[in-house]
Amino acid sequence: MATSLSPSSTPLSPIQLSVLQRKRSSNLFAVAGIFSIAIALMTLIALVLQLFIQGFPKLNWQFLTSFADPEASLAGVLAALVGSCLVMLVTAATAVPVGIGAGLYLEEYIARNKFSALIEINVTNLAGVPSIVYGLLALGLFKYYFNLGESILTAGLTLALLVLPVVIVATREAIRAIPSSLREAAYAMGASKSQMVFDHLLPYAFGNILTGVIIGLSRAIGETAPLVTIGALTFIAFLPDSPIQSGFPFISFEWLKAPFTVLPIQMFNWVSRPEPEFQVNAAAAGIVLLSLTLMMNSIAIYLRYRIQKNLKW
């Protein structure tokens, strides 16, 4: 048995044989792991290539600055691009303050009781509700009950419901990462609770919350299903009123009531058509959409990387 370890002996001992066999299966699994990652990576590459090969020829200035058109070669994504931006504006303006407020309340204010458990369960469940269900909610509530119509406001609020749990979770995790010694330090200086929260916790957690918000918005900008149910139009040949006016009072909210389309809806519409020319348009719209989400994702990943590097509690 003792000689079994000697490395030079040519016939392998039982121990060495056992190690060799077991390491072989271990290495085999490592190969399977790399293979699995390769599948994921190849899918991503195939997806991007497919989009580019089909859609790149179409991707030009004319495509970005034209409205939808029954003639595939003349159609563009201007209305959808502007629509996506405006809808995101509404979403961010509503989901971010409410989400951060809810996150702060759940981390710092709530008393641990039955009610807090209820809210807790609610947040986790909301994050798991399929997006199309939010669309149904918006259809019944915003469109028919509040009579907001098929407007940018309705769309923005619908997506805000979707982003809300993401912002809440991001806020809570960011706040939780702050050591309690900082809270105590603020209190020891005579700060009130709200001063402690808004002068200390919120600024310190800002980077991480921002990361979560960007990731949430990048999901929302690609969402299609809930906007289909509220009845987004796909053929819009005009832009909504500009929010900034030349005459008094300079700011207008008329755009909130305007009908809209967004990039994913436009792409879905083109994909569903049988004519191959429209599928080229779909691919081109897909490139624009994917670039937007990837850009937002990379900003978030970079931000998180920077924060992790710089911040050590």
């Binding site: 991503l44 690609g222 994913p264 994909v271 779909a282 897909g286 959409l289 994917l290």
Partner: peptide, 24 residues
Amino acid sequence: WVKPILEILAGVPTVVYGYFALLF
């Protein structure tokens, strides 16, 4: 290196996945 790739995969809009399923 691998985790951001997975995150990007998770971030692809589903309508783009639908297009990919149908046409690729």
